[in-house]
């Protein structure tokens, strides 16, 4: 059994009051998690939840006020230099001169490390070969982000921390970046992915923690978290004509009355939404089939990590919950 690559337990960090007489802000109240080698581990939550502070503490960029952090068996709080060689970090904001070229940036960052990845391979992996002589300031958002990832990987790290790497990217660039992160994981690098995008975490992470108000509110694989959701599942039905729809509405309303697995049937627009237990789809199909009312389209309502968030926090998921604590 291998020990975790990253181990955070009861991490706490309070920032002093911004103004004299103001109240100090607790960014991280109590965060614990473990990351195993070779997985993509997500730290998910709204802005201001304490995600960035958490990774800054474990990257040795910030002093915590309490709790312990171990990265590759070392304490980055005691001696940040111990992990610098082995932890690649991609920060939220672009951090290069506008006039430096892609190749120069890779070369200079590579020179900092005793072991370094082959720049040509890295350019290829990140689809930057054609842009290697272009200046940073002239790259597109997606290209900048890919270069930023390349720089996090140039020292052959064992752990890569990627902070909000798809913010500001168009959908195509986001999907391309996700594939890239999977390739990075497949090359043996443990990835710590910080994100406020629910869909990104669901799509990419092998395991994740959901952080809210400086605390871990949920932890597990995305599918286990979604499976574990309480409450109703939903089915949406669409019919070819109004007659069929009205007939179905009556049938399903009656079904909801007598079948414990069906909670309610409500018309929404020109569709009917039926909610109930995990047997609801089965019950609906049987009922309609028996009456020979054939729907045009049936789809089960997708349940996402967003629903998980709503369940564990009791409120809607909004990205801008509160101000991100200034550095």
């Amino acid at each position: 059994m291998t020990s975790p690559v990253v181990e955070v337990s009861h991490l706490r960090k309070t920032y002093p009051a911004a103004k004299r007489g103001g109240t100090p802000k607790t960014a991280v109240a109590d965060v614990s998690f473990q990351v195993a080698r070779g997985e993509i581990f997500g730290i998910l939550g709204p802005n201001g939840a304490g995600k960035t502070t958490t990774v800054e503490c474990l990257a040795g960029l910030r002093r915590s006020d309490g709790g312990t952090v171990r990265v590759l068996g070392q304490d980055p709080q005691a001696d940040p230099l111990l992990i610098r060689e082995h932890v690649g970090v991609q920060l939220q904001e672009a951090a290069l001169h506008d006039k430096i070229t892609v190749a120069e940036a890779l070369d200079v960052f590579g020179s900092f490390y005793s072991e370094r990845a082959d720049p040509a391979e890295l350019l290829d992996l990140l689809d930057l070969t054609a842009h290697r002589h272009q200046q940073f300031g002239k790259l597109s958002g997606g290209q900048k982000q890919r270069l930023s990832i390349a720089l996090a990987l140039v020292g052959k790290p064992q752990v890569a921390i990627l902070d909000e790497l798809t913010t500001g990217l168009d959908p195509a660039a986001r999907r391309a970046t996700w594939e890239l992160v999977e390739r990075v994981r497949d090359s043996g690098v443990t990835v710590l992915l910080v994100t406020h995008f629910m869909d990104e975490a669901e799509r990419l992470c092998d395991r994740l923690v959901v952080i809210d108000g400086g605390r871990v509110v949920a932890e597990g694989t995305p599918s286990a978290l979604i499976e574990g959701l309480e409450g109703d599942r939903g089915v949406r039905l669409r019919f070819a004509d109004d007659g069929a729809r009205e007939r179905a509405t009556q049938l399903l309303a009656a079904l909801a009355e007598r079948d414990a697995d069906v909670t309610a049937a409500v018309p929404i627009g020109d569709e009917i939404e039926v909610t109930g237990t995990r047997k609801v789809l089965f019950a609906v199909v049987q009922e309609l089939a028996a009456a020979d009312v054939v729907p045009d389209d049936v789809r089960t309502l997708e349940r996402t990590l967003e629903d998980v968030f709503v369940q564990v926090t009791g409120r809607e998921y909004r990205v801008e919950e509160n101000e991100e604590v200034a550095a």
Partner: peptide, 10 residues
Amino acid sequence: GILKRLSTTP
């Protein structure tokens, strides 16, 4: 953020 970025390297 160049100074901060360097802080994450050796």
